[in-house]
Design a protein around this nucleic acid. Sequence first.
DNA 1: ATCAATTGGTTTTAACATGAAACCAAACTT
DNA 2: AAGTTTGGTTTCATGTTAAAACCAATTGAT
Lengths: 151, 151
Amino acid sequence: MVKRKSHKGNYCPSARSLDVIGDWWSLLIVRDAFDGLTRFGEFQKSLGIAKNILASRLRTLTERGILEAVPADGGARQEYRLTPMGRDLFPVMVALRQFGERHLFAPGEKHSRLVERATGKDVRIGIHTEDGRPIGPDEALIIKIADTDSP
Amino acid sequence: MVKRKSHKGNYCPSARSLDVIGDWWSLLIVRDAFDGLTRFGEFQKSLGIAKNILASRLRTLTERGILEAVPADGGARQEYRLTPMGRDLFPVMVALRQFGERHLFAPGEKHSRLVERATGKDVRIGIHTEDGRPIGPDEALIIKIADTDSP
DNA sequence: ATCAATTGGTTTTAACATGAAACCAAACTT
DNA sequence: AAGTTTGGTTTCATGTTAAAACCAATTGAT
């Protein structure tokens, strides 16, 4: 491929996010981390991912501050835990989940659910303005950064 | 690569979503579509993506119901527009954007913004229970589907 | 109408990433 | 102490990507 492109320099925050977690496996690893998995073997079993790919992903997620590797059992083995930055991916997970639930399951087909621990109630996502009014895609607008080099 | 794995059969809705839009380019194409781009050349210029890859992505996004291709100018050329299903990816875009804004820009570094068209106010995302209470990752829990084949 | 340029792709090619399996060292079990 | 489990790394075949060349159909200029 002549090296996969990066979106790092992009001034769109979504693009930069995809640069960090936009590959085939990273967000699934993060999802499992939200679900409490911490060990190499747990992720590998849960995802059915090749071990070399998993090792590579855990390494880059750690380098990028999404996960942190803490020594386990006082030995050489690691436990991988979400950092505060990693936990800030929660809305991304919920948004993906909600989209999938709505469009990617046959009617009546079962799927896992994300619920409030205390009450068992479904978790939802909402888009709104900073003063709290709900807003849809058609009322929103992307403002690109001003080109400060213009006359 | 012995063919990239698919998450299609997975019972996690997030995994299925990633199966549909989880590659390196699809969500950026969707972002540009939200921003009003419709033509092959517009996407190509905006993203700097190779033309063959773009053609391939537009095809699969269309096959999967995220985009629809409508003939433009009454000729053979196409316009690519978001379907209602595609517009339901809006929360995903907003969530990615919010994460990127928070963690992937240096202090003071400029980035594009997503605002309400009418007021110019920032668009935010919120996670809450079905009865409206805000909720964080630690109060949430994934419930896996019951294994109906168990005794 | 004719010729040139633009648009919207497809094909080809080289580099690179992925997945599977084999391999290996350290830690844990017995 | 020997075997097993855990947590990887290495090797290899194949898939996927990026870039560039190519091409047909419109569109624009003369």
